[in-house]
Amino acid sequence: MTALLSVEGVRVSYGRIEAVRGVDLAVAPGEFVGVIGSNGAGKSSLMRAIAGVLKPAAGRVSFDGAEVTRLKSHQMVAKGLAMVPEGRMVFADQTLRDNLLLGGFSRMRTDRAGVMRDLERVLVLFPRLRERLDQEAGTLSGGEQQMLAIARGLISKPRLLVIDELSLGLAPLILDMLFPVLSSLNREGLSILLVEQMASYALAVTDRTYVMENGRVLFEGRSADLARDPRVLDAYLGRRRAA
């Protein structure tokens, strides 16, 4: 089976600073893949390169069989890859409804009915958003903003949803609500690439996980196996590896 997303040898630099130093990664259709690793490991930079927010300094990104390395983020959305960025980035000065409609920006001209249908669908998924449709997004709590950001991403009708730091600043109670939603979306066929610093959550919901450190993939494997791997904990709490 060909991968939906495949990343080969991607490097990302900010000036002279190399944040990602040659990463290979793949997501198969329907797969739920996690990327974990300590802060500053280069996870977010990798996601930004995949989503077209920044251009990789080297390497290749393919989506759905076609090379997309040089495409910009709005073109990636049109191709079917949506990203929920770190820190949510909802449009705080616009209403929830407008935020959601903007999520359908690239489809609006050709498929307005579809956007409206999907808007209804995400409101079923996140009923709390429905109550606040005419509120400005800036008035939402962090958890609600994260729901909105996910919902906004879904309205572009992606085949791959990239989520960067789902748990950032969120209370465990909210996370217990969000992760099952992602699982059910995945079961319905959506491929998901999740970057998460709370490794225990990520390992519990994903099929496969990459562990990053210092801009490189340290190792990868089935999430269920990694959850028992002592190296994972080491990567977080900085304990010296045995050997």
Binding site: A51, G52, V53, K72, S73, H74, V77, A78, A82, M83, P85, M89, V90, F91, A92, D93, Q94, L102, G103, F105, S106, R107, R152, G153, S156
Partner: peptide, 10 residues
């Protein structure tokens, strides 16, 4: 409001 976020919604 946010150029990056705008790009990410297409």
């Amino acid at each position: 409001y946010n150029r990056t976020a705008a790009g990410l919604v297409g």
